[in-house]
Design a binder for these strands. Structure first.
Length: 806
RNA sequence: GCGGGCGUGGCGGAACUGGCAAACGCGCUGGGUUUAGGUCCCAGUGGGGCUCACGCCCCUUACAGGUUCGAGUCCUGUCGCCCGCACCA
């Protein structure tokens, strides 16, 4: 018998699919129906693919085939997130232009993807570094600018001293740069921001529109947005005519405020201490704090310095000392707090260090004496030492105090968010230029849309210098102002690559459009994405940015929906040596050797079989052999069955095959349980192998081949041909024959006191009382009953009988 | 501290709605085919006990309770692990 030769089979079919453009799905216009958009997250073209990424795209591939064969017009595109530091750093390290590095990498990855046999519509390929793409990234930026959603502002920002660029909040992990691990510093800089925070409530509330996002992602986003309801209270600075607002979630504790703290970066600090005895000490403290990285600041013991000033507590008129301390953050709330040491851990720690007074104003309702700090805020806690509010439950006390202060103009309910605006400018070369011009007389002027794209200039030296390398492109940077024609300079910063990936799925719908980013009709046909697949690492990065982007575009009337990704599946990553497999960790395993030795089908099957699709798994190459073994067995059995004259008839194999159809369809379509789907087909093949000449064997083999096709399309296609058929990739998905799902008998589980005593084969149509009678007849059951009296009989139709005795 | 999740053989895992725990695969053991190795085929493989044997019994899903005729699955508590956020007022 001819042996299974995966190399020959796979390259043959890959050529057929390529020649036929088999997986291109053209636009058919909106309302055509049946459109289904399968999308995996945009890959970053660093080097070559590893098996962890193979997992992502193989899962998407199974769904692509599955939905195609259910009659859907599936769009399954591919592209590359090709701007960014990775290519730029490689260029600095090894020489060469980032563009050439990216081009090389994309070429290699594309070849690997084709060799994996993934059903990708290559006619829609995009790459974010190409002018044809970033022209429209720039165009979208201008729409945001017009709408007031993009702006320049000075703010305390995170700065990576190694990459020499600012970072978005989301790119700082444990106080370190997400990319290089360097401790991140704080700088006060004027930068470009998207007004992310204006959409905080929509980003929270419209989570209801998401059909099946994993709870952990939603939780991470809720957590990241960090909405908290409280109040803003006004404290007057004694002897100065200045009011300073504070945000608090514990207005119920206002009578316990014994001191007041400002962040070192608070703009009023210099004014408070100007020309006072405390000025040198305070300014020195502010300077020393600025020199600390965020991580250092978080981990050190709290300290601070007295300003010499006092604030007036708006509730009781008390004079309380004002301090500057680094445990108060300028970025949150108003950058100043009322400190209530009796009921806040941090304030308590600070008060203990500087021997500041502690006054308890909340106590348990049961009258017990709590250990301080006592942070309870519930109906179990009541106010004490709080003048007319004493005795109220804490939540009610809060409400009344805010209302009372409000009437006197000293407070109001307020909401604060942890979310900060999205800092989008980067002082680096390899990104899309921000399409504006700085003019001495007109200020910031957008580049006219018809002049887009603003092309990246060619420069010699990409090395980061703390300001954008584009500054050195003198010819490029000097331009006449589009408004007044006077001398002006181009914006030299480039955009965060997350801007590129916030809209790429829209471009797939109309990838070659050169007069607009996309036709609205193309978007209406395909979007939102029906099934998005990607790793959890983008929980609060890409996934939140893209949601924001779409909401703005929807409000601008550019797209007709609120949420970009209807359904999201988070695949688990692949570990190697106990750590997540990645290029940067140096533990990446290339698929190439496995493809060469066992074939793409075996690797595809194995990566699906290795564990539940959403679980993290450890890479173990030994399991791959089992998949090769299975494919050889399938090959042998199929050829053997193909060679014999068909002996049809609904035997046991026909039942088994129909049950397998039901199981596999449900596993793939509803549960994303590719591992058990494959196990089910294996079971069927094992069953056929026991007697390939049994009745129904041919039907069973064809079913097995058809069901395994989304996971192992090459061998399935080859065997389908040898079984006398054609073009399996276009065949309708098999449906089960209900009459063959019915069996004449079933195995009745007979229990005594809940323990299985005798499984009995009985006719399917036996009435309940007959089932019980059969159960009682069983000698094994009789032995267990031991003549005892049956107190209760439980019958589960078509499953079991449970006899309960004393 | 807050939030999300997990704990099943030597290993990866299955058991979806409470109904035969360990499907499927890896590994291992024995046997067959083969000049040999590999491939391939057959059988076995959670623990303990009884039996010459066919078989039969008991225990077992981190631990302790609970609900139920029946719990890996539901509830309470404990222990352990993973992930995200964290000086957010």
């Amino acid at each position: 018998m001819e042996t299974y030769d995966p190399q020959a089979i796979e390259t043959r079919w890959q050529k057929v699919w390529e020649d036929e453009n088999a997986f291109h799905t053209p636009n058919a216009g909106p309302g055509t129906g049946n459109a289904y958009f399968v999308l995996e997250m945009l890959p970053y073209p660093s080097g070559t693919l590893h098996v962890g990424q193979v997992r992502n795209y193989t899962q998407g591939d199974v769904l692509t085939h599955f939905h195609r064969r259910h009659g859907k017009r599936v769009m399954r595109p591919m592209g590359f997130d090709s701007f960014g530091l990775n290519a730029e750093n490689a260029a600095i390290r090894d020489g060469g232009h980032p563009r050439d590095i990216v081009r090389e990498n994309i070429k290699k990855i594309r070849a690997q993807m084709k060799r994996m046999g993934w059903a990708i519509d290559w006619e829609r390929e995009i790459a974010s570094h190409e002018p044809e793409y970033y022209r429209w990234t720039q165009w979208l930026f201008l729409q945001f600018l017009k709408a007031g959603q993009a702006m320049r502002k000075e703010a305390p920002v995170k700065w990576c001293p190694k990459d020499q660029t600012v970072l978005a909040n989301e790119q700082v992990i444990d106080g370190r740069c997400e990319r290089c691990g360097t401790l991140v510093e704080s700088k006060m800089l004027e930068q470009w921001f998207f007004r992310y925070t204006t959409y905080a409530d929509e980003l929270l509330d419209e989570m209801d529109l998401l059909e099946s996002w994993p709870e952990r992602i939603l939780a991470a986003q809720r957590n990241w947005i960090g909405r908290s309801e409280g109040a803003e209270l006004l404290f007057r600075v004694d002897e100065l005519d200045i009011d300073i607002p504070v945000f608090t979630t514990r207005a119920d504790t206002v009578y316990g405020a014994t001191f007041f703290v400002l962040a070192p970066e608070h703009p009023l600090v210099p004014k408070l201490v100007a020309a006072t005895e405390q000025e040198p000490a305070v300014l020195d403290y502010v300077r020393r704090t600025a020199a600390h990285s965020f991580a250092e600041r978080e981990n050190k013991e709290k300290d601070g310095v007295f300003t010499g000033r006092f604030a007036i507590n708006p509730a009781n008129g008390e004079r309380i000392p004002m301090w500057v301390a680094d445990y108060v953050l300028m970025e949150y709330g108003s950058g100043a707090i009322m400190a209530v040491p009796a009921h806040d851990d941090r304030d308590f720690e600070f008060a203990a260090k500087y021997e500041l007074p502690v006054r308890q104003v909340i106590a348990p309702v049961d009258g017990s004496e709590p250990e301080l700090p006592y942070v309870a805020k519930s109906r179990e806690a009541k106010l004490v030492n709080s003048e007319q509010f004493t005795g109220l439950p804490a939540p009610e006390g809060e409400r009344q105090i805010v209302e009372w202060l409000g009437k006197r103009g000293r407070g109001r309910p307020a909401i604060s968010y942890r979310l900060r605006d999205w800092l989008l400018s980067r002082q680096r070369y390899w990104g899309s230029p921000i399409p504006v011009v700085h003019c001495g007389s007109c200020g910031i002027v957008p580049v006219p849309e018809e002049e887009l794209p603003v092309l990246l200039p060619e420069i010699e030296d990409y090395a980061p210098k703390g300001k954008s390398p584009l500054e050195s492109a003198e010819d490029w940077i000097r331009v006449p102002c589009p408004q007044c024609g006077g001398e002006a300079r181009r914006e030299a910063d480039t955009m965060d690559t997350f801007v590129d990936s916030s809209w790429y799925f829209l471009r797939y719908c109309d990838p070659h459009n050169d007069t607009a980013p996309f036709e609205r009709s193309a978007i209406d046909e395909w979007c939102p994405v029906d099934q998005y697949i990607g790793g959890i690492e983008h929980a609060v990065l890409h996934l939140l940015y893209a949601r924001y982007f779409i909401k703005v575009l929807n409000d601008l009337g550019i797209v007709g929906f609120r949420e970009p990704f209807s359904r999201l599946f988070n695949h688990g990553w692949v570990d190697m040596g106990g750590a997540k497999m990645s290029k940067s960790k140096g533990n990446a395993i290339s698929p190439d050797d496995f493809v060469r030795e066992h074939g793409a089908d075996a690797l595809r099957l194995y990566i699906l079989f290795i564990g539940p699709a959403d679980a993290r798994v450890e890479w173990q190459a030994t399991g791959l052999e089992g998949m090769s073994r299975f494919l050889r067995r399938l090959w042998r059995v199929a050829l053997e069955v193909a060679a014999q004259s068909p002996e049809e008839g609904p035997g046991e194999l026909a039942h088994k095959a129909n049950e397998t159809i039901v199981k596999v369809t449900d596993d793939i379509g509803r549960r994303f349980a590719y591992n058990t789907a494959i196990a089910a087909v294996m079971e069927l093949v094992n069953e056929i192998a026991r007697d390939p000449s049994a009745p129904g064997a041919r039907f069973a083999v064809e079913t097995a081949v058809s069901l395994i096709q989304p996971a192992a399309p090459h061998v399935a296609e080859e065997l389908w041909g040898r079984l006398g058929h054609e073009r399996l990739w276009e065949q309708p998905w098999p449906t089960a024959d209900p009459s063959l799902l019915q069996r004449e008998t079933f195995e009745l589980v007979v229990q005594v006191n809940g323990k299985v005593r005798d499984p009995l084969e009985v006719p399917a149509d036996l009435p309940e009382d007959e089932l019980v009678a059969r159960a009682k007849e069983s000698p094994k059951v009789q032995a267990q009953l031991n003549g005892g009296e049956i107190r209760q009989t439980i019958v589960v139709p078509r499953k079991l009988v449970n006899l309960v005795v004393n």
